[in-house]
Amino acid sequence: MIYFLLRRLASALPVLFVVSLVSFVIIAIVPGDVTAEIAGSDSTEIQRAEIRERLGLDRPLHEQALRWYGRLLQGDLGQSFLLNRPVTEAVLERLPVTLSLAGLALVLAIVLGVLLGILAATKHGTWLDQGSMSLALFGLSIPDFWFALVLISVFAVGLGWFPSGGYVPASENFWGWAKSMTLPALALAITQMGVIARMTRSAMLEVMSQDYIRTAKAKGMVRRTVIFKHALRNALIPIITVIGVMTGVLLGGAVVIESVFSLPGVGRLIIGAIQRRDYPIIQGGLLITAAVFVFVNIMVDLAYGWLDPRVRHGR
């Protein structure tokens, strides 16, 4: 297991190297630079040249890249051009927002999706089945940010149940945090809820048609026990395999949701940095986000290997 973990961690390094190269490509193609943002739109060319020199932007890109990698080896992601603080600090401060949004959305997607899937599978062929699957399909097909706008209109403005945006740290006020995260997490979860509901349904149907379930039923076990003890447990395994991919989709989707609900997350930090040409934040933000995603995937692989005996022994 340790060997497996180490091997996976080592294989993540070239992946992150490619990520950092892509971030340099982004910097190379983005027109303009940060100087107008720092000095104002009517600053003179001399003022801007001074700032460029101070930030090292006057050097060729490969030189900037080498210096960046040199610092990276010492664990230093540099200093933001605009935020007056280290990149690592700025990104790590935002990470809890994005992670709690994506995490909550993941939980919502799994819980709602599995419930919907079970409902569809146990009422197979009835209108409930069709209704749940239509709902799942609808969730899969609507743009999540658009759904977010609808949620704001209905639940924040119309009914006033939830705030329309803003972030309350859970450490300060848990109830406030839960309230501020409900609508964003729901909006973000809707697509993945559809995916999970459909997976659960087909997995349940497959498991329920298998011999041991039939046997269990024939032996007169209570229907609910059969469903929850045997069918569901086996149906959950494929869901675990997609959690890794799903985390990626949620972390990516969080960018838009953060912007709709004005949450100070990493996604908005990166987009803002691209728009304002804050290069160190672009590089550090992309690298850290990718690292989180890669790490989650490794964890999912581990969990999967641990849960599914076939895989465990296969290795």
Binding site: G160, P163, G165, S259, V260, F261, S262
Partner: peptide, 18 residues
């Protein structure tokens, strides 16, 4: 001073008294 980039969300916040 809260930063709310979405005008719709900002108006909603004003209407709800946030």
């Amino acid at each position: 001073f809260r930063v709310i980039p979405e005008p719709g969300a900002a108006v909603a916040a004003l209407e709800t008294g946030e």
